[in-house]
């Protein structure tokens, strides 16, 4: 039963590759979420407009999350089996399928943005987005019709933190030693 950390690292041939399986030109291809974003791959579960909204909000919450592939990460995770999901929402007593939670949050956020600023989330200034998110976190957006707005803020913020800081490269960004027993075969799955 006892194995050393070095044995586990050595046993992980894929150690550090940080890849996800995406479909590129009809073939399953290993890419990081950031690479998937750069390749402009079509989404599988959420529509492009919803992903744009989520990415816009996430980038305000955690600068760098967009380039790290938050939209591709969410779409990928929401496309798989719940047992394989690595989303924090699993902990939070939210009913499945989780995609309904995200769709509901996107729709409500868009309505709130148009009501307050007469433009979609993706076209808000950083100050307007921040104002919207502060109200959302406090549950103060009037007329919100979706999942609890404070919970939607909390979930999306933590998704963005996961994408940017929850990986080996994120640890490096913060100067935190990763010290893996078993190196994750990919960033997210």
């Amino acid at each position: 039963m006892s194995r050393s950390r070095r044995e586990f690292v050595a046993a992980s041939a894929a150690g550090g590759l940080c890849l996800l399986t995406f479909s590129l030109a009809g073939c399953d291809t290993k890419l990081t979420p950031a690479q998937a974003r750069a390749a402009n791959l079509p989404p599988r579960t959420l529509d492009t407009q919803s992903l744009t909204t989520l990415e816009s909000l996430a980038e305000i919450l955690v600068p760098g999350a967009a380039a790290a592939g938050i939209a591709q990460y969410l779409d990928h995770q929401l496309s798989g089996a719940p047992a394989d999901s690595m989303l924090m929402i699993k902990y939070l007593n939210v009913g499945m399928p989780f995609v309904q939670f995200y769709r509901g949050g996107v729709q409500a956020a868009e309505l709130a943005a148009r009501r307050q600023f007469t433009r979609p989330v993706a076209e808000l200034s950083p100050q307007q987005s921040s104002h919207l998110l502060r109200q959302m976190s406090a549950g103060e957006l009037e007329g919100w019709q979706g999942p609890p707005q404070g919970l939607f803020y909390f979930v999306l913020r933590n998704d963005a933190v996961d994408v940017l800081y929850g990986t080996q490269s994120g640890f490096e960004l913060l100067g935190v030693p990763y010290m893996a027993h078993i190196v994750p075969p990919s960033k997210w799955g």
Binding site: A83, S85, M86, L87, G166, T167, Y178, I182, P184, K187
Partner: peptide
């Protein structure tokens, strides 16, 4: 071998 050192994988 399933116990990957990752807060994300831990959720599985």
């Amino acid at each position: 071998a399933d116990l990957v050192s990752s807060t994300l994988f831990a959720r599985r």
